[in-house]
Design a binder for these strands. Structure first.
Lengths: 342, 342
DNA sequence: CTGAAAGCGCTAACAT
DNA sequence: ATGTTAGCGCTTTCAG
């Protein structure tokens, strides 16, 4: 347990005062060139790194950005996370990750954890911040916190005026519907899974119905099945529900890649083929889309851009630079094998 | 930007000294019951949380455990992570997550980050700490660090004497081979993907060959294909290689669930059926095993136990309690639909 | 340009 | 049982 070398040791060996060492460390003031070189030499010699805790104690700065996701096992979130991490690292920040599993109590507790840990910014991904009707108590808490710590939400958190990064869900559905309707064989389109209490899903459904009309296609309520769960079983159950009817749809829209897996399983169990009998299109474009069989045609975002935008916004907020209150991430379509070709 | 309430404010309002507040905060000394109640009331009133940075400055304690994984997008790691998180949270710790993508330079840099952030323990999962021949420079670095910060490795890191949590890979292969050989139709068993520079994979292969002999089955070098990549493409390429031959194996062992996805794709592209023509068995039992089609029969560990054991070990080390130098996690078999029934 | 000194918020002796 | 005080390692006035 070797004693840690501190700024005092460095100062002593370099023959200067600790303030001088501090100055070369922060670069906040001019120092005599020769002394600077000597100090840097000693710092290097001991591979000295200033104690972040002590530094943070002064300016309430931890060098940590807190991320609260719904569930990092979801490939959408994990992919987003690693891209955030890369951008954060480039800026000298590290990430503290917490998972709420969309549990209200967890969200409250974990937010407190992040605050207590004095993170320099908080990024909220999924969970509460994608609910159509925000829990007002949660919104209040976030509003209070955001007065001292920048909070960025991925998804909208109504009742707060946090900066939010949003996927352009209207565009998502436009891409989906344009692609499906290009094929004249596709007449009956189903929407499987996802709950309308979730803002993004709600937008998807609303735009879905609007576009059906625009394309002069009929809307079948029995082919529009909601489900609280966004996992495989959620997709599976929803699709089973849809396939209860005598006739089946020509295409199905899935809320995400994971639930698409359940949809695929249901379709196969009903002895129907993808894409010959039913086309499946999903939202996400996570690595799951290429893992599944058939591989998924999906609409998704560039995660590099997405993560970069999130961190860039957080950093601006930390530096108190002006930022847009709302940033839209544009999606694009990736064609694979789950949709029938013209 | 409301001023933060500190221990001084609490003391003032409760009409006691800051030490008394500190004492009820830490619980390290007895305090008059009435004063304690009053202090707690004020603490609650302001939702006061002691500044962890200040606290940490004293005992070099950040309340943070650093986790360095190879890639959190890998479901094996993300599942392990959330289980570690749960155990850590229960003990009052939060997690700082870094991903190395198995890149040597990243590993060095990120370890430094964790140290600088004064994490209370470091958990190394995958990457360097699963290589058969450990990078000696890395081992040296870890050895030095582990003199001041407890380091737990998931996988073995030779050249160090870190506490390691290991999956019993011998048992894994025993379960795999026992299961496969119970079926008398299975004669030719292939091993697809994974590199022998990786310790756990190397063990799998060694035991695989040993058990073939034990079961009086022939070893076919052309059915034993190594591949550096542990992703879908790695499995796909390996399986393509195996299926180049005129005859195909009766069963294939995959190194993990992701590569199994590639193996499945390759088999299907060769117009062979799973499990009728070829059985596939994998290691991991992540949620992917039930997502894929067919769902995977796999050998895996109980992630709850696994994560719990990792954190428990880290906590013991932090408290300087004695721990076993090596802890084995026992695997079990989960039967799904990728292997032919008797 | 540089050193001395104050202090960030807290804990842990040290006195009472 | 409680208050006073000395730091933890660093940054930042404030004098020079």
């Amino acid at each position: 347990m070797s004693k840690n070398v501190t700024i005092v040791d460095i100062a002593k060996e370099a023959g200067v005062s600790i303030s001088t060492v501090s100055r070369v460390l922060t670069g906040n003031a001019r120092v005599n060139k020769e002394k600077e070189i000597e100090v840097k030499r000693v710092i290097k010699k001991y591979n000295f790194k200033p104690n972040i805790l002590a530094r943070g104690l002064i300016n309430s700065h931890s060098n940590l950005i807190g991320i609260l996701t719904a569930d990092i096992r979801n490939p959408f979130y994990s992919t987003l996370f690693v891209n955030c991490e890369q951008s954060a690292l480039e800026a000298g920040y590290s990430l503290m990750l917490c998972n709420s599993f969309s549990d209200r109590l967890n969200e409250f507790t974990l937010i407190d954890k992040l605050v207590q840990q004095k993170v320099d910014a908080i990024i909220l991904i999924g969970g509460a911040c994608d609910e159509l009707k925000t829990d007002s108590e949660f919104a209040q808490k976030i509003t209070r916190i955001s007065q001292s710590i920048p909070v960025v939400t991925v998804g909208h958190l109504s009742g707060t005026n946090c900066t939010s990064i949003l996927i352009n869900m209207e565009k998502v559905m436009n891409l989906v519907m344009d692609f499906l309707t290009k094929n004249s064989h596709i007449k009956k389109i189903a929407f499987a899974g996802g709950s309308s209490t979730v803002a993004s899903t709600n937008t998807m459904r609303t735009v879905f119905k609007k576009l059906l009309k625009k394309h002069h296609l009929e809307y079948f309520p029995e082919f529009d099945i909601q489900n609280e769960r966004y996992d495989e079983d959620g997709g599976y159950e929803s699709m089973n529900e849809i396939l209860k009817k005598d006739s089946h749809p020509d295409a199905v829209i899935a809320v995400n890649d994971i639930s698409a897996a359940g949809i695929i399983r249901s379709i196969h169990e009903h002895n129907l083929r993808i894409p010959q009998d039913i086309s499946v299109i999903s939202f996400g474009n996570t690595y799951l889309s290429s893992l599944l069989n058939p591989s998924l045609t999906t609409v998704g975002c560039n995660f590099r851009t997405f993560g970069g935008e999130i961190i860039k916004t957080a950093l601006s907020l930390i530096k108190k630079e002006p930022v847009q209150k709302e940033i839209l991430i544009e999606p694009s379509l990736t064609i694979r094998n789950s949709c029938i070709a013209e």
